[in-house]
Write a protein that binds this DNA or RNA. Sequence first.
DNA 1: AAGAGTATTATGTATGACATAATAAAGTTA
DNA 2: TAACTTTATTATGTCATACATAATACTCTT
Lengths: 235, 235
Amino acid sequence: MTIAALKENFNSIDTSSLVDKVEANLVQLLQERKLKVGDSIPKEVELAESLGVSRTVIREALMRLRMMGLIDSKKKKGSVITSPDIFGTLSKSMNPHVLDQDTLKEIFELRLVLEIGMADFIMERVTREDIEELKLIVAEEPEFSEKLSFQIEHEIKFHGKLYEITRNETMKKFQKLLLPVFDYVHSSGLLSKEVVVKKYVSHKGLVDIIEHGSAEMLRNAMRNHLENHFARIFD
Amino acid sequence: MTIAALKENFNSIDTSSLVDKVEANLVQLLQERKLKVGDSIPKEVELAESLGVSRTVIREALMRLRMMGLIDSKKKKGSVITSPDIFGTLSKSMNPHVLDQDTLKEIFELRLVLEIGMADFIMERVTREDIEELKLIVAEEPEFSEKLSFQIEHEIKFHGKLYEITRNETMKKFQKLLLPVFDYVHSSGLLSKEVVVKKYVSHKGLVDIIEHGSAEMLRNAMRNHLENHFARIFD
DNA sequence: AAGAGTATTATGTATGACATAATAAAGTTA
DNA sequence: TAACTTTATTATGTCATACATAATACTCTT
């Protein structure tokens, strides 16, 4: 047996706590029984008895499930299955103040990646109504002289609509999560370079392409539109 | 006051439990003190005393922080600050078996978005060594006749390397998270359409572009490379 | 039969106790 | 003195019990 194999073996000895096991147990139970949303699971004391552990352990395990968005606990009612919201969990830790700088920058980049990459989904799923709405939003675009908060608000509205067009709820939620971080990185002095407020492809330009262009064109236009941000990242 | 405003107000009445408050309190404490990784926080009993709640509540709150990846608890040592791993939290709930079908499909899409969108970061940050490594990986590409598991393994290796080239750890972790889901959706009968094993831009083609082409070219090539997947999603 | 009041129930909180593992301290041997 | 072993300490992990609280079910009154 090699050293590496030994270590592997050593690491794999069961170091998990009781709560860990109970948690795994419960998750397994949930997926085995194929429970529907709204179904309720056994009471804490029942679980404690049937699994042979204290209610404390059960409670901690249930709390984890709750944090995972698998269940929701109500007094008297007990715990019921809920549609798991993967990003609900994340939203807690996605706090600019608790994340280190490197991670913050990386999240900033992640947003750029998303917006460029989602072009195909926008072009595939955009409707007549979406385009009309986009045009409306663009029409309301604040003047360059107006308050910064207005401009940011408008930015969010426009790009938020783009996410909506993808008809991908997960992506939309993800964006909502990234937003405060993006904002934070953008406005705090985290990025060395200054903001160059050159005008590249405008929102209007993007809408035109969404209406008449192709996915490929949209990708390129979006890349150009985001040039200000990219310029701050790359040398 | 409008109905909506009323409801807003109504929802905002403090319905949070003690644990919620303590949790918020602790998070605030951590960010205020600007604690470094490795620093330890007060013991459970101390916290319980100073905040005037039971140890039970403290423990539940600490467990949440632990799930957020903010702290790590060791016996005797107490709890210490850790570099928050935002996706560590997610990995638990990112279980194909507990996610509903719609979410699974959306995650499938998310991966496609990422791979197309990250072209700029690849082109910006790729090194000579990366390209050599990519070439090596491509050279090892299994024959079309070989076992499917080999091909999948190779896929993961190649695309994993691409994520690595972005030098974005967060993105890489995110991909690692998405991987099992992607795999699950791909192989389970979740997508209506069959897999069309037409050959589009190959891995080798992608490497060529990374070596000699532009970000724009890479985006288009990647889109083409992923056509098999897109075809299964779009009608 | 509708409403008010009461009982029940399951989670939320509090407390105290012991188990366990990691560390520190003390002691032992070369 | 240094290295090793044993013992003590400490903080988290687990357990048990009791009471608080809120949501539901039940009963009684009118």
